[in-house]
């Protein structure tokens, strides 16, 4: 049953992800992005990581994509016309695709990952408290650094937009 649902949601997520990439209309792309996030959230639910699933929807689908849509609508982004495909594009995309395949093969063929599988802790969804404790003890430094990075990004945006105004 779970396997069936996994394949269902994985296909859905991948299909929507392709939709994001291939949509010419930016609003369609944003809507596909929301559905991709919803698909990923359902995959988290299948892994019993309910907290991650809900946060995925709350942060990405509920706030980030709304901002995307907001910008798309305010700037009135028009449908993309087909770009002329140069040989350089072909070479670059082929190299990118080859690197992606290499990465997937490297991950799946590695023995380390399979060995780690048994020692990993249970999904954090079972107890939120564990999740919080881990975040504020073991992973305190990465969390603070991430927060600081976001602060820098925010200040950067404010500085850039202010400068635009005074010119």
């Amino acid at each position: 049953m779970t396997d069936l649902f996994f394949y269902l949601f994985a296909t859905f997520t991948l299909g929507c992800a392709f939709g994001v990439v291939f949509s010419r209309n930016p609003v369609n792309a944003a809507m596909f992005l929301i559905m991709t996030f919803l698909g990923m959230a359902s995959l988290f639910v299948l892994l019993e990581a309910y907290f991650l699933a809900v946060i995925q929807i709350l942060v990405y689908a509920g706030a980030v994509v709304v901002l995307f849509l907001f910008i798309i609508m305010l700037l009135d982004v028009k449908e993309e016309n087909t770009h002329r495909v140069t040989p350089l594009t072909w070479v670059a995309s082929l190299i990118g695709f080859a690197l992606l395949i290499l990465g997937v093969v490297a991950i799946t063929s590695s023995d380390n990952i399979k060995a780690v599988g048994d020692t990993l802790p249970e999904a954090a969804g079972a107890s939120l408290k564990n999740f919080g404790y881990e975040l504020f003890t073991t992973y305190q430094l990465p969390m603070q650094v991430t927060g600081f990075l976001l602060l820098i990004a925010m200040i950067g945006v404010i500085v850039l937009s202010k400068r635009m105004k005074t010119d």
């Binding site: 609003v27 929301i34 309910y50 907290f51 809900v54 946060i55 929807i57 709350l58 689908a61 509920g62 706030a63 709304v66 849509l69 907001f70 609508m73 969804g125 939120l128």
Partner: peptide, 25 residues
Amino acid sequence: DLNVAILFLFAVSSLGVYGVVLAGW
């Protein structure tokens, strides 16, 4: 009776904004 009920509530109700935004657009 979800363990993350309040977050679920906020998450799903925040999706309601798409109805308004898309209607406007």
